[in-house]
Write a protein that binds this DNA or RNA. Sequence first.
DNA 1: AGCCAGACTTTAATGATAAAATACTGGCTG
DNA 2: CAGCCAGTATTTTATCATTAAAGTCTGGCT
Lengths: 300, 300
Amino acid sequence: MARTDARFREAFNGLLDLCSGLAPGDSLPSEAMLAERMNVSRTIVRSALGDLDERGIVRWEGRSKTLVRLPDRADRIELRGEGVNLQELETRFLDWILRFDVPADTPLNITQLARQFGVTPYTLQEFLSGWSRFGLVQRRPRGGWLLLGFTLDYAVELSDFRAVLEIDAVRHLVALPQDHPVWPTLDTLRASHRALLERVETHFHDFSKLDEQFHSTVTGVVRNRFVVEFQKVVSLIFHYHFQWDKTDERQRNEAAIREHLEWIEAMQRRDEAAAVAAARTHLATSKLTLLSSLRGHNLA
Amino acid sequence: MARTDARFREAFNGLLDLCSGLAPGDSLPSEAMLAERMNVSRTIVRSALGDLDERGIVRWEGRSKTLVRLPDRADRIELRGEGVNLQELETRFLDWILRFDVPADTPLNITQLARQFGVTPYTLQEFLSGWSRFGLVQRRPRGGWLLLGFTLDYAVELSDFRAVLEIDAVRHLVALPQDHPVWPTLDTLRASHRALLERVETHFHDFSKLDEQFHSTVTGVVRNRFVVEFQKVVSLIFHYHFQWDKTDERQRNEAAIREHLEWIEAMQRRDEAAAVAAARTHLATSKLTLLSSLRGHNLA
DNA sequence: AGCCAGACTTTAATGATAAAATACTGGCTG
DNA sequence: CAGCCAGTATTTTATCATTAAAGTCTGGCT
């Protein structure tokens, strides 16, 4: 078998669901219609219809497709092989690197990794190529891949780059007109921060989400695909890292909330200098936290 | 055949060259030695030796490898299939996109493109994955690739992002100590710019190179892999574009030289505000040039 | 003891191939 | 006869088996 027939299986079950909504004797829509509904090509609809006919669920003759009997649970075909998509792979891969402290300059074994993550080498290849642009992995001269690793250096440079982008975003933000949607959003965020600060003792875990919201609001004012793309990477890495590092989480989060509030208020006053200063302060704290969590793990 | 035997062929010819430097009766070095010399694994040395023995050029028995006769040109084996590496592919791909004005949102045909560029689909896949991080191409939901294209929007965002990075670099640069190597480099660059300005009428073509030198000097002070990586992309794209746009080249270059000089001198005075201003001016000009050249091409 | 070759294992790039998507064409229906 | 629909053929992509190359270990010669 070349490609997996996962699409077929999904479409087949989808057709069963659709049939369940009909009564025996009813006609099914046209092939093209079904294909569109299932978000799949006509070819696959036709092979599914063929199976349905064979099983006596549908009588398919030319352009007439009449439902013979209602399908039951036993008619469904299994979707073996959980579809591990690229999104999922990203999560697992970062998990693996950050959680198990894979040392820098480790040669990566494509075949083995692919097995480990439940994807084909082809998919993994594609995935690694993407990361190579961000210097997390590198192609070795004679084939194969090298994990350059999430080193202290990497974290420092990542943080610095993040700071450059966010401070630029701050400069843009304070210059935005009064009727820009970011201002009400900031009001809301400020309120959320204050609310969380009230009950920080018990709800400090909620900060992670708020943090992501806030940073994406700030960087979001810069409509730039490079910034957006990079921001995705940053938040992935920061997010994952803080997930493992639970030391002093309450204190850290409380401090961060206060830093955010100062930053937000400076922006609301349209005070560029103060906002940039507050941003620098917070980003520096963030960087230190990242570095210390790395030290705790890697001893690097 | 699974992998190409290009490495073998290269190594075989390499061995012939090595033999040419010996006299009949001489012994060849050990397998491991040869492997290191040819930058190849022992396996491949051994198969090459096997061939040499079969052809009666070398007598290979166990660990004794004696040269029987000097090889001649006829002994060489042909290296069919020009090794198209990733570097080469990048050049060709950008060439293709920028030169032929491939419209935005074109579905890419992997197989066809791979043939066109003389690489395997696998290689092309890997290459495209890399670019997808920079939003030039995108994966389509049901497989395949979509060229998002080098649109005006893209150019604007690219230029803006570039400006953010370079201005950050300028801020770093002016704060560097007197004994930093960048200062002598700037002196040299200033002199080169002035020299070029003298003979700009005839040598305006030389500016392209100087431009790249200057920008890489400025951004080079920021030791950050993300900046470096992005800078590579920027210079590739700017470089390629200016290569095709020859309108008003002399005037453009002359103006750019003057802008550079102002920028350089401001940095040499350690005048951050002036340097940033000069940088902004030049980057804005650069952006306009890129956009107008795009308009000329695409009518987009 | 140190190096070297033989044998073997593992890994990665490729061609073949099956699955899915798409394009084209003829025919039925209203 | 116009519009839609199914049949057919063609393209294109993702996977798999295959094979070249790299790496590893062990025994033996110098």
